[in-house]
């Protein structure tokens, strides 16, 4: 059986390799179009221009995917068993968290800001922010009781909602959804990315935590 499977997969790989090698050696893809419009995209980093302007709708839905995954994880309930309860962090972890978390937050802020002109952006920054959250969770830090309900949920949906609201606002002025006027595009992208960074970071840390902290309290 395994030999047959191996043979099948090797045949598939060979076919794919042949297909890829048959592609033209030169292709500009869409880079001509992306370069032509970069001046009115609001940013100078072409990848950010694609993510937050030309194909912003993909990015918008993808923030939805992240939120949805968290909803799915929360709907599964608690997975923690007695043996998985966190033990008190040792002094090394505790001090490491104290030193690293502020640095990570600064790095996240820089990455988000830099995304407009060099590689970086909301997802990279959100990932670093999420890492800071994971470190805090490992070090035994838990979110304040007063913040676990609605405030936490609002922070999770903020990126998606502001994205949608900004996109919708311009529909009222005879534009399409997510069609930013060039003169405001830069500011709007910065606003959306900033809030998306926050939501992404919190969502990633929450995914690591597993169950809904509100339900864990009860």
């Amino acid at each position: 059986m395994r030999l047959l499977l191996m043979a099948l997969i090797i045949a598939m790989a060979a076919g794919l390799a042949y297909a890829i090698l048959s592609l033209p050696a030169e292709s500009a893809g869409l880079s001509v179009y992306t370069t032509e419009n970069i001046a009115i995209s609001g940013v100078t980093n072409p990848v950010t221009a694609v993510l937050l302007n030309y194909r912003a709708y993909d990015t918008f839905l993808e923030l939805g995917v992240l939120l949805l995954a968290l909803l799915g994880v929360w709907s599964l309930g608690s997975t923690a068993t007695a043996s998985q309860r966190p033990s008190a962090p040792g002094p090394v972890l505790d001090n490491l968290a104290r030193v690293l978390v502020p640095i990570l937050i600064v790095v996240a802020g820089y990455l988000f800001w830099a995304g407009a002109y060099i590689p970086g952006g909301a997802f990279q920054a959100g990932a670093v922010l999420g890492a800071a959250g994971v470190l805090l969770i490992l070090a035994g830090w838990r979110i304040n009781h007063r913040l676990v309900g609605l405030p936490l949920r609002i922070s999770l949906v903020l990126g998606l909602v502001v994205f949608a609201v900004v996109g919708t606002l311009f529909m009222l002025t005879d534009r399409q959804f997510l069609e930013f006027p060039p003169q405001y595009a830069g500011v709007l992208i910065l606003l959306i990315e900033g809030l998306a960074t926050l939501s992404i970071g919190i969502a990633l840390a929450a995914l690591f935590l597993g169950a809904d902290p509100e339900e864990d309290d009860n």
Binding site: L30, Y54, A56, R175, E179, F180
Partner: peptide, 13 residues
């Protein structure tokens, strides 16, 4: 046909 973001294919969706 609705061009999201106003760009239109192939650049937009």
């Amino acid at each position: 046909r609705y061009a999201v973001g106003g760009w239109g294919a192939p650049l937009g969706i």
